[in-house]
């Protein structure tokens, strides 16, 4: 909610320390945090156990005989090349993010800064496309992929979603907040529009660009429905690939959890670094994809 959220939760406001009163609240938060972390912990714990120990009773919270065998086997699995799927996801997510952010920057700038015929109409037209649920265009897009011969190619993974409306909306709002004076000074010096965008607007928009970049990357990396249908075999992406494992290794939870951990851990590590931008981005825009 762009209007109501001008600042993030005020960390500065702290009237007085009320430690004793805070203890129950703190303990409750600890319990909740443990519950939230349990599935992740259980995934890692299971992935480090030999097959027989995964269903051992009584329950083994800590693997009694820790082993990396599951990881070794899943990486060499004849049922699917998990490294290739990871590479596909990397290509898709970076390709999509780069193209999409570039297109959104170029489109948002004139919508925020220039006067031209049809500006408002075009902005609302693009924005209203956010009202079309993904399922409505899924099948027509799939058929277009067949006709373009794009099934099982990176083209199918990257291009169809790049012209997002949300990115245009978000960047336009951000550009509107940049003082015009800065731009006018550059124009006096003879800079053209592209130079103004490149040398004045973009350096001031780094937080918005990073937020949009992180959002786009995550949306693409985690996308499930689209890759599930348009790519197969070695062209699959990591999330789709590991669900394949879940039907192959129905009872072998050690291997399945090793595969799931390989998909989850890089994202979790990246989260430790990008967390700030994500939380800010959600608070500032009030949007989730």
């Amino acid at each position: 909610m762009a209007r109501t959220v001008e600042k993030l939760p005020a960390l500065a406001r702290e009237p007085r320390r009320r430690l004793p009163r805070d203890i129950p609240r703190f303990l409750l938060l600890c319990v909740l945090a443990m519950i939230f972390l349990t599935p992740i912990y259980w995934m890692i714990s299971t992935s480090l156990k030999p097959e027989s120990d995964t269903i051992a009773q009584p329950v083994q919270w800590i693997p009694a005989r820790p082993t990396l065998e599951n990881y070794r086997e899943i990486l060499a699995s004849p049922d699917g090349n998990i490294l290739r799927w990871t590479w596909n996801s990397v290509v898709m997510a970076f390709g999509y993010t780069f193209v999409s952010v570039t297109l959104c920057v170029l489109a948002a700038y004139p919508l925020a800064r220039m006067r031209f015929w049809g500006r408002e109409a075009w902005f609302w037209f693009v924005l209203s496309s956010m009202m079309v649920p993904g399922i409505v265009t899924l099948i027509p897009l799939y058929i277009m992929m067949i006709q373009l011969n794009w099934i099982d190619t990176y083209h199918a993974l990257i291009w169809p979603g790049v012209a997002q409306a949300f990115g245009v909306f978000m960047l336009r709002q951000f550009f509107l907040g940049i003082p015009r004076e800065l731009e006018e000074a550059a124009r006096m010096d003879g800079a053209n529009s592209l130079q103004v965008l490149r040398h004045v607007i973009l350096p001031l928009s780094v937080p918005a660009l990073v937020t949009l970049g992180v959002f786009s990357f995550m949306a693409s990396w985690n996308n499930y429905v689209w890759p599930l249908f348009v790519v197969h075999g070695d062209m699959q992406t990591l999330p789709v690939g590991i669900t394949l494992f879940s039907s192959r290794y129905v009872t072998d939870y050690g291997k399945l959890m090793a595969g799931t951990a390989i998909a989850a851990l890089p994202v979790l590590v990246a989260y430790l670094f990008a967390q700030r931008y994500l939380v800010q981005g959600i608070a500032l825009t009030g949007m989730k994809d």
Partner: peptide, 22 residues
């Protein structure tokens, strides 16, 4: 705590689904 409660949301539905099935 805020980071922990938010964290599951960054996972793919595939990871989340397999975890909860298990």
């Amino acid at each position: 705590f805020r980071a922990v409660f938010f964290m599951p949301g960054i996972l793919s539905v595939a990871v989340m689904g397999i975890l909860w099935k298990w």
